[in-house]
Write a protein that binds this DNA or RNA. Structure first.
Length: 552
RNA sequence: GUCCCUGUAGCUCAGCAGGAUAGAGCGGCUGCCUUCUAAGCAGUAGGUCGUGGGUUCGAGUCCCUCCAGGGACGCCA
C-alpha cells in the first residue's frame, strides 16, 4: 500500500540524514501519513517534522528540508515539497495513478484485501440476544455493525469466526417458559395467570396459539413440570428459528450458534470454578460464591453462584470466554454488546486476566441505544412490556439495504435516532440508493458500450489525465487503506462515508467525461476506468452487506 | 451518590493515535435534462465545535471544573 511505502521512504530518509550528520540521533517515532484536506497540498502528507521539534530542537521547516533532501526519486511520486509550518507533502505521478486502474482490474472482486491479520484467528460474537422474543432495532444495529466488521476483518486477512451465543438456561429462560406455559393454557381456554415478571408481549400469545394449533393440548396431559419443560423446548426452538430468519433477512449469518447450556454439560463451568478457586479469586459470603473482582481493582465483587446453587449469567460468560481463549485458542476475541451490558465490560476484562489471559486479546464494542421515532414522536422499546417495533417490521417497511445503511452510518459509541417514517418516505433519497445508483449507472454505460461494439480491449490507461478521472482513481485507491483503518479501530461506520464519497466522485466524473464516444482509444481507456470503479463500488457495498444492483 | 457513553450547521451525524481554511446527508435558496440512467450535477446560505480553565509551536481532538441528554450500578441477562 502506498501509504506504507511513503512512511518507509520517510523513515529511511531520516536515518540517512542522521548518518550524514544533518539530524541528531534519536529513536524513530511512528511515521503517520495522512491525506491533506486541501488537494493543493498533494496526495499524502506527513507532519513528522513538527513532532520532531521537541526531540531535535531544530526549526520544523529545517527538519523537513533535511528529510526531503534524503528522499530518493521513486516511480510513484512526482514531487515532494515542504510547506509551512513543517509539513512534507507528496504529489503522485499522474501516469502512476492511471496505471493503478490495471491493478484494480487485476485484483477484481478481491480489491481492497490486505494482509494485516496474517491469518490470525479471531472470533467475533455479536447480537447474542436471549431467545425469549423477537429482535428489535437495537439488536439490528449490533447485527449490522458486527457482520460488517466480520466482512472487513476477513478482507484484512484475519481468519474470522462469526458467533451467536444464546442463553438457553438461567432465570430469564425460566421466566420465558412460565410465560409461555400461561399463554398456552389460556389459548386452550384455561384460566392461567402470567408470572410476575413474565414476558407480556403480544408475541407470546401468538407463539402459544401457534403451538396449540400444531401440537394440540398434549403438554397439558403431561405432569406439569414435564409439560412446562417440553413446551419450553419447542418455544425456544421456535424463537431461535425466528431470530435466525430475521437475521438472515438482514443479511447476517453465523458460523457458530453457541448454547449456554453446553457450558454446564461439557464441563467448562466446572473448570473455571476450579481455576478461580486455585488462584484465590473465589470467596463465600451470605451463602453465595463470589468472584473477588475488587482484588483486581473493580468497584465490587460479583456473585458467580447464587445461594440457591444456580450459577449466574456472569459465571456462564466466564466459562464461555474460557472456551474461546483456552479451548478454541482464538488469538483475538471481539464481543459486541448493547449499551445495557456496559457494566459487564470491566468485570469481564478482570476475570479474563484472572484466568491468566492477556486482557488486550479481548475487545469489547458497546453499541449505544437506538431511539425509535415515528415522525417526531419517540417510540419506547421494551421487550418485557412488549411495547416495541420489531426488526422484522422495520425490514419489511424500509428494506434490508436501507436499514443496514442507516444502522451502520453512526459510530457505535453514539446514540442514534431512527425515524421509521423518514426511512420509508425518503427511501428514494436514502444515501444507500445514491451509492447503488452510481453502480447501476456504470452497468448501464457498459451495456451501451456493448451494444455499440465498443470494448476496453487494448485500452491505454495513460490516456486518463483529467482531474475528474484522477480524482476518481485516487478515491478508489483508498479502499485498502480504509480496510486497514477499520481493522485497527474496529469502527466500520467509516465505510458508509467512503461509499458516498466514492459515488460522488464517480457522479462528478460522469458529468464531465463522456465514456462511449467516437474517440476509440479514449473510449477503451475510460471503459477500463469505469469497470474498475464498478468493482470498487461493488466491493464497498459488498463489505457493508448490501446489494450492488445492475439497474435501478 | 459512583462509573461509562454522548454534546460539532435548522435536523441527523462524520472528523481516521492533536496538525494546514471545521465536513457530509437531509432541509432552505439559485441554476442545469435533443448527448452513456436527473435516484444526478453545479452554486449559495448556515458554526464563538455545551461551559470555564489547563497542557503546547499548534486543541473539535488530550487533562480538570461545571452544565445537559442517555445508560449502568441485581444472588436479571
Amino acid at each position: 500500500m502506498l501509504k506504507q511505502t511513503i512512511s518507509e521512504l520517510i523513515s529511511k530518509a531520516i536515518t540517512k540524514a542522521q548518518k550524514e550528520g544533518k539530524l541528531p540521533a534519536f529513536d524513530l517515532p511512528e511515521i503517520v501519513i495522512e491525506h491533506p484536506q486541501n488537494p493543493d497540498h498533494g496526495d499524502y502528507s506527513c507532519s513528522v517534522p513538527l513532532k520532531l521539534t521537541k526531540i531535535v530542537k531544530m526549526k520544523p521547516m529545517d527538519i523537513a528540508k533535511d528529510i526531503i533532501g534524503s528522499i530518493p526519486a521513486s516511480p510513484e511520486i512526482e514531487k515532494v515539497d515542504v510547506a509551512p509550518p513543517g509539513f512534507i507533502n507528496f504529489t503522485l505521478k499522474k501516469v502512476w495513478l492511471a496505471k493503478e486502474v490495471n491493478d484494480v482490474l487485476k485484483n477484481g472482486a478481491n480489491y481492497g484485501n490486505i494482509n494485516a491479520g496474517q491469518g490470525k484467528r479471531i472470533q467475533i460474537e455479536f447480537v447474542s440476544v436471549n431467545p425469549t422474543g423477537p429482535l428489535h432495532v437495537g439488536h439490528g444495529r449490533g447485527a449490522v455493525i458486527g457482520s460488517t466488521l466480520c466482512n472487513v476483518m476477513t478482507a484484512a486477512g484475519f481468519d474470522v469466526t462469526k458467533e451467536y451465543y444464546f442463553n438457553d438456561s438461567g432465570s430469564q429462560m425460566d421466566s420465558f417458559r412460565q410465560s409461555l406455559w400461561a399463554r398456552y393454557q389460556q389459548a386452550l381456554g384455561k384460566d392461567a395467570a402470567m408470572p410476575e415478571h413474565g414476558y407480556m408481549g403480544e408475541y407470546m400469545v401468538e407463539l402459544a396459539q401457534e403451538i396449540k394449533e400444531k401440537e394440540g393440548d398434549r403438554f397439558l396431559k403431561m405432569p406439569p413440570a414435564e409439560g412446562v419443560e417440553k413446551l419450553g423446548e419447542i418455544g425456544l426452538a421456535r424463537v431461535l428459528e425466528t431470530t435466525r430468519e430475521d437475521l438472515k433477512t438482514l443479511r447476517v449469518e453465523y458460523d457458530v450458534w453457541y448454547s449456554e447450556k453446553t457450558l454446564y454439560e461439557k464441563g467448562q463451568f466446572d473448570i473455571i470454578m476450579k481455576l478461580l478457586r486455585e488462584k484465590g479469586y473465589v470467596a463465600e459470603k451470605d451463602g453465595a460464591i463470589w468472584f473477588s473482582s475488587t482484588a483486581l481493582g473493580e468497584d465490587k465483587d460479583n456473585v458467580i453462584v447464587r445461594s440457591n446453587g444456580s450459577p449466574t449469567y456472569f459465571a456462564a460468560d466466564i466459562a464461555y470466554h474460557y472456551n474461546k481463549f483456552i479451548e478454541r485458542k482464538f488469538d483475538k476475541v471481539i464481543d459486541i454488546w448493547g449499551a445495557d451490558h456496559m457494566g459487564h465490560v470491566s468485570r469481564m476484562k478482570a476475570v479474563v486476566s484472572a484466568l491468566g489471559i492477556d486482557p488486550s486479546r479481548l475487545e469489547i464494542i458497546i453499541n449505544q441505544m437506538v431511539t425509535m421515532r415515528r415522525g417526531g414522536e419517540i417510540v419506547r422499546i421494551s421487550r418485557r412490556t412488549g411495547d416495541m417495533i420489531t426488526l422484522r417490521e422495520l425490514l419489511d417497511e424500509a428494506g434490508t439495504d436501507a436499514c443496514r445503511f442507516i444502522l451502520l452510518s453512526r459510530a457505535a459509541s453514539s446514540q442514534m435516532d431512527f425515524d421509521i417514517e423518514l426511512a420509508k418516505k425518503q427511501s428514494a433519497e436514502n444515501p444507500v440508493y445514491y451509492v447503488q445508483y452510481a453502480h447501476a449507472r456504470i452497468a448501464s454505460i457498459l451495456k451501451v458500450a456493448e451494444e455499440k461494439g465498443a470494448t476496453d480491449e487494448g485500452g491505454d490507461v495513460s490516456l486518463l489525465t483529467t482531474e475528474p478521472e484522477l480524482t476518481l482513481i485516487r478515491k478508489m485507491l483508498q479502499l485498502p487503506e480504509l480496510v486497514e483503518t477499520i481493522a485497527q479501530t474496529l469502527e466500520p461506520h467509516h465505510l458508509t462515508y467512503y461509499a458516498q464519497d466514492l459515488a460522488t466522485v464517480f457522479h462528478a466524473f460522469y458529468k464531465d467525461c463522456r465514456v462511449v464516444s467516437d474517440d476509440k482509444a479514449m473510449t477503451s481507456a475510460r471503459l477500463k476506468l469505469i469497470k474498475a470503479a464498478k468493482l470498487v463500488l461493488g466491493r464497498t457495498l459488498n463489505l457493508m452487506g448490501m446489494d450492488a444492483p445492475e439497474r435501478m
